[in-house]
Design a protein around this nucleic acid. Sequence first.
DNA 1: TGGGCTGTCAACCGATTGGTTAAATGCAGG
DNA 2: CCTGCATTTAACCAATCGGTTGACAGCCCA
Lengths: 115, 115
Amino acid sequence: MATDPLSAKFAALADPTRRAILARLCEGEASVNELAEPFDMSLPAVSKHLKVLERAGLISRGREAQWRPARLEPMALKGVADWLEHYRRYWDASFDRLDSYLRNLQKGKDDGRGH
Amino acid sequence: MATDPLSAKFAALADPTRRAILARLCEGEASVNELAEPFDMSLPAVSKHLKVLERAGLISRGREAQWRPARLEPMALKGVADWLEHYRRYWDASFDRLDSYLRNLQKGKDDGRGH
DNA sequence: TGGGCTGTCAACCGATTGGTTAAATGCAGG
DNA sequence: CCTGCATTTAACCAATCGGTTGACAGCCCA
């Protein structure tokens, strides 16, 4: 698991339980028990998910008495967004092609280039 | 691997070989041999990576004689970007806090809220 | 028809993943 | 100090992953 940081982030996000945990952490810090509550899953399983998220840098953890609250580290998500940004122009182009195709459909005929 | 589409996309992106393949496909369609050339890896291995990308919807494949060219499907990446977009406000907020922190450091003192 | 490409399929392998249960750790309060 | 709560660690398990090699299939061309 000592792979590159970006791979670690994508791998961490590739699990719906972990994405749900991130969504929950948008509302603020939470203890392991609070985070585990919605899931039909043992506590150690949630603890492992938290470790994956932490090693990917997507969350950080505090220490308050016997609690180890987790909080979101959103800058790590920005790293993922920055990688994706390189591809924006490609899906923009795809969307433009789809858009003009639908536009021509709505005119009841094709764009004149048809047979 | 019959998980949800978003998980499949993240999982597909969590491998540097597959991300390199996507980057190569930005320059246009490519055959399996062309895609495999930069990697120290057997052809079947690359073929498997392509299958992962295809099942995630990130690429599609054609048939031209004995070639099965792969091409980028950028709208699938847009799906990932849309998920990330929900978190933009959190990293924007983080960045603002970091930004004002650095600003105050540069003034040679804190922002007056210090003890 | 038979080579020689291109690419995939099948079987196998070791490592990793996502989960379990049981035991251990750390801390707070009576 | 002992109990109780919150959490992690350890050991284990089945399934998946990322790679290999070897055999197979589709297509062009002599």
